[in-house]
Structures are given as C-alpha cells and as structure tokens.
Amino acid sequence: MNRHAHEVRVFDVVQETPEAVSIVLGLTPELRERFVYTCGQFLTVRVPSAQTGSVARCYSLSGNPHRDEALTVTVKRVAGGYASNWLCDNVVPGSTLTVLEPSGKFGPDGANEDLLLLAAGSGITPIMSIIKTVLACGTGDIALLYANRDPGSTIFAGQLEQLTREHPERLRIQHWFETDQGVPDASTLTTLLAPFAERATYLCGPAGFMAAAAAALAGLGVPASRIHQEKYLSLAENPFEQPEPSSTPASPGTEGAALEVEIDGDRHTLTWPRQTRLLDVLLEHGIDVPYVCRESICGTCVCLVRKGRTRMVANDSLPEEDIAQGLTLACQSLPDTDEIFIAFDQ
C-alpha cells in the first residue's frame, strides 16, 4: 500500500443533485496535518473492485482550506463508470475510505487577483474551492461561467446563490443551461468572455467544454500562461496496488550523472543512471520523496533544478512558465548533464 494512503471515516454524504453526492470526511487529530491542502487540489480515492482488487480515482476538494471546513469531495455519476457509481451507491455516513494525501496544483497563488472561472458539470468542484478561498481571504473579484444540462443538475446551486448574496460586488455568476441554450461553442463563449479577457482564467469541465472555452480565450488573445486547466485524466497505474519500493539502492551502472538532492533539510549524493527516472532513483535509495500518480498528472513530485539540466519524458501538470524557472517532475525527469543539483520543498 502507498505510504501516503490513509483510512478515513465518512462523516456525512450530501445529495447535491440526483447524480452527484458530496462525501464529507472526518479526520482524526493525528491526520489533520497530513491533509492540509490548497484550493484546487484533489484526493485520490481507493474504490474496491472484485476484478482488480481496487481502482483509483481523483476527486477535487471543494472547501476553503483556510477555514475550518470539513474535508469534502464531490462525485458525479458517469454513465458506465464503475468508481463513481460505486461511491454514489455504497458510501454512507460511517463508511471507511482509503485516500491519498492532497495533491495537484490548480489555483491562484494569492487571493487578491481578479479571476475568470469557467466550469461545466462536476468541474465546479475545484472552482468552488477557488471561489471560497478568494472571497474569504482576499480582495479579488470573480466572474464565473457555469454550464450544466439544466437547473436541476447544477451542483452547489444553493451555496453559489448564498455566496452571491454575501458578496454581490465581487462575485458575478453566468449560468448556462444546455436545455435552453444548447451546447456552448467557441463563438458564443467568445462574446461572453470578452469583458474578462484580461483576467487570469481557471477552467475545468468535460473535454468538449474545455476545448470550446480554450478556443474562445485564444481567439481573444489571452496568453496561454494566463489559462489554467484542470483535466480529469485516468491513472494508468493504481497507486494503491503498487508495491513499496525497495530500500536497497539499485546498482547505478557504469554511466550516470552525479546527483545531489536536498529534501526535508537533508542532502544526499547519488549516481543517477541515464535511463532511470529521478523518482525511481530516490525511492530505490530509501528517500521519502512526495509522489502519488507517477504519471505527470498530479504534480506532487515537483522539484527545482538548481544546477545542471534535466528533461521530462511527459508533462501534464507543469505550465511552461514553471518549467522556464527550473521546475520539473521527479516522476518524469531524466538527467541531461553530468552534474545536477535538485531541491524539493520549493
């Protein structure tokens, strides 16, 4: 079992819509520190399976991490989706779920910048966390476009209405219902988004909505660096079923880079084999490096290249500006120079 996995008790289950529930988790005092999170992050949940032992799915947290709110994830049924239907049908107050610690990097660094937020369906979950955080902790104004099939499928409808009443000068919401307006396309979205094109934008929803919104923003001249997308991607590997790495260092071979790593205040000097990814090297040497998915999706293993140069095999979470500043993903990084210095906890 993954060393970052914990069993937590379900405190409550809230029926948000006929197809979506919010699962409220209760944390013991000793686990609270392990589940500190930032707005826009997610939990990876283990769902039992008779065929494979378990499957793993990621669900975004919807609360304000700076307030004493319960840890809550929201799950919407997916047609033919095993995990979402199992959670909606089987989880009740008192159930126990196995979850990984919070991961991901989707949200503003501060709470004072004006934002444009775009959500469709269950994509509202991480967006809701951003809304609550900015309104409670900063001065930024928010414009939200929220698309759903119809009013009855609108997750957090009551909470959004209440937040609008509490912050009428700072929160503007434009609802889009497909039953009335059809599926949103790039042309229509361009008109709606034009007044807010100068704002940093955070976008989450189904692939079709994301593509239409991204096209509209590009047409308005919004730089890619100002558009932040949270994509729901399936994990190719199950982090709950992976064996723990050996604490015995593997043989480095005859060729490798001289690697120095700083993590948790300690420095380690290692040999980094040319074709071995950084995360695997560190785990093989018994170094407790943060990671979850090993697939470049979650961003948990991000680190800073202070000296030398690395290259990533894949990247689904780091924007270009972060890479330009020297950040990389340990799970995808290979050495590109003979001497490299990597620092975590940046």
Rank of each mutant, 00 (worst) to 15 (best):
E241G: 06
S246M: 04
F11Q: 14
L318K: 09
C331H: 07
W86M: 00
A120Q: 04
D141A: 13
L61G: 09
S103N: 08
S103I: 09
V45E: 04
L171M: 12
L279D: 04
T300L: 07
V183K: 08
S296M: 09
A120E: 04
G326Q: 08
G140E: 03
D12W: 10
P223W: 07
N2F: 07
L270S: 06
K105V: 14
L171Y: 06
P168S: 07
L259V: 09
H228T: 09
C58Q: 10
Q346P: 01
A147Q: 10
A216L: 06
A20F: 01
Q332N: 06
R172K: 13
E230I: 13
F177M: 13
Q15N: 14
V222M: 05
T191E: 13
L192P: 00
A56G: 09
M1S: 12
L118R: 12
Y59M: 09
G121H: 11
A186N: 03
C88M: 04
E169N: 10
G123D: 07
H175S: 07
H66R: 14
I323M: 15
I173T: 03
S103A: 15
Q174H: 14
T248M: 11
Y37P: 06
R277C: 06
R226V: 00
S225Y: 03
F344N: 11
S153G: 13
I342G: 10
Y82E: 12
R3D: 11
Q15L: 10
E255S: 12
I287S: 03
R311C: 10
S317W: 04
T164I: 01
G253Y: 12
I124F: 09
L160M: 14
V73T: 07
G253S: 08
Y202A: 04
S153I: 04
W86T: 07
